[in-house]
């Protein structure tokens, strides 16, 4: 019988304090604080649009090709079809080859489809009939909140490509621990608490995406959604500032 069982390096989660009595989290943040966000637009010359986004130690590259002529199978005569691919690098998780999200290829396909749904709610697809927009996201380092980071990176890449969007789509993860709502979880917190990922269109306040990894108590949900929405608006402020800086540095009048 095999006595070996793989245990993550954070197997001591239950004994570790995810939230100290002083209200500080494992990485020293307060409950409502986001991790440090760094981003760059236009990182690849050949793609129509690209972006690199870091949220804490989660690092994601997104590239957009198109809108271009659609493959016959994907072509829709009145709107553009969006084709999303989610990929997580083998070296992105705690242990090489063992992906932090778990589930491997099936999980990646599911997240790709989810991303496609999220983006379809925001791209003005009716402007690009018979076309196809390819969005590729690649997770280089996974440290919690990978899906939310991918949504944010894809938004930046679409803006860089000049694709018409109804609004930004900003995502963030949230959880509740000892009655205290937390936002933007890292991987330690993800393994110790249930996770909710929400995406928000800041202008209309609509939520095109809501995903939960485990069950929450229904009484907590309202408060959790409020906290997640505030966090998404914070993300929007940060991304918007980055886009404005990018565009104004490249303004050219002949």
């Amino acid at each position: 019988m095999c006595a070996y069982m793989w245990a993550p390096p954070f197997s001591a989660v239950s004994t570790m304090e995810l939230l100290s009595d002083q209200g500080l989290r494992v990485d020293g943040r307060r409950a409502h604080e986001l991790r440090n966000v760094e981003c760059r637009l236009g990182v690849f010359g050949r793609a129509d649009g690209s972006a690199y986004l870091e949220q804490g130690n989660t690092r994601v590259l997104a590239t957009v090709y198109g809108p271009h002529e659609a493959r016959a199978a994907q072509r829709r005569h009145d709107v553009a079809s969006i084709n999303c691919q989610y990929r997580q690098a083998v070296f992105s998780g705690w242990e090489r080859g063992r992906r932090a999200g778990g589930g491997g290829d099936r999980r990646a396909q599911e997240l790709g489809a989810l991303l496609q749904n999220t983006l379809e709610s925001v791209v003005l697809v009716e402007l690009y009939p018979r076309s196809q927009i390819d969005v590729y996201v690649q997770v280089l380092q996974a440290d919690g909140g990978t899906y939310a980071t991918c949504v944010n990176a894809a938004t930046l890449a679409l803006i860089d490509a000049g694709v018409a969007l109804r609004d930004y789509v900003c995502a963030c993860s949230a959880s509740v621990l000892r009655d205290q709502p937390l936002v933007d979880l890292n991987s330690l917190e993800t393994s110790g608490a249930p996770e909710l990922t929400a995406a928000l269109l800041p202008r209309s306040g609509r939520l095109p995406l809501l995903e939960m990894s485990q069950r929450f108590h229904v009484d907590k949900l309202g408060e959790l959604l409020d906290v997640a929405e505030t966090a998404c608006r914070d993300v929007h402020t940060i991304l918007n500032r980055a886009v404005r800086r990018h565009v104004s540095a490249r303004s050219s009048e002949k």
């Binding site: 803006i159 018409a164 969007l165 109804r166 609004d167 930004y168 269109l201 800041p202 202008r203 918007n240 886009v243 404005r244 565009v247 104004s248 303004s251 009048e253």
Partner: peptide
Amino acid sequence: TRGAAQLVTPG
């Protein structure tokens, strides 16, 4: 600043 041109982002 580039004159009066207004910089906007989606939304």
